[in-house]
Amino acid sequence: MTDMRVSIAGVKFKNPILVASGTFGFGHEYGKFYDLSELGGICVKGTTLHKRDGNPAPRIAETPSGILNSVGLQNPGVDAFCAEEMPFLKRFDTKIVANISGNTLEEYSELAEKVAAAGVDMIEVNISCPNVKAGGLAFGTSCTSAAAATEAVKNHAGSVPVMVKLSPNVTDITEIARAVEAAGADALSLINTLLGMRIDLKTRRPILKNNTGGLSGPAVLPVAVRMVWQVANAVKLPLLGMGGVASGADAAELMFAGASAVAVGTALFNDPYAPIRVRDELAEYCENAGVARVSELTGGVKPW
């Protein structure tokens, strides 16, 4: 039996399969299909200081091997998350990763303080949401602001490890990764969605009411593998890899590229059991390959 336990910045996950923020809500829905304690961890829906209604519908469009979404961080606000969602999530034997998104550095600080006090296991700093005007991606595309957001969260997170979620919508993701590392991040997660657009030929209207949205799903897997590999070579921080993972083989690729753990997202919409299946397929791959500890896969690629 392969040892499936992994750890990121001191947080011990029972297996390396998490679910990606924004695809799993706060766990209630998929908790009807399986015990959430089966998961390595849950990156919960991104939360903001105040409640957000999100963007107008349509918020989704299908693409070849993927989807575009433009939800726009609809969420009940951090206080509701802490008061109403955390008590439910804490009932499960899994790690809870809060995902926070601020409009200003002060908001990032306040969010970090609140979710840390609520007892989350880790904070994922969203500086890469492509669907909101202020904050979000605005912080993630420059080294200076990415570092500033990281520092703001670090200074208010107490002992809770801070993981920064990187955007692929940049010229050189390794520059941002280095800046965030220097600012004190404990881990990185990547990739967020790639900015995209689709147009209805009949109406000449973009399918998304927001015009543009974030691309996810199998189409982005190779981009994620490449970026995880580049970032792994650029920094010493542990990485949570994500982007189009739909099978154990996909997860293994991201781990070989340098990820310590992997998040499943869009695959859930096709198969609610995707994270469990990915975990089991990864374990089976390890068994067959004679891998004693799944953590041995991390960074195991042999580049030409």
Binding site: G22, G25, P56, A57, P58, R59, V71, L268, F269
Partner: peptide, 16 residues
């Protein structure tokens, strides 16, 4: 009717 994702209330795309 609205363009839908997960179908179970997790992804929040079919807003009304």
């Amino acid at each position: 009717e609205e363009r839908m994702g997960c179908g179970v209330g997790a992804c929040l795309v079919c807003a009304v």
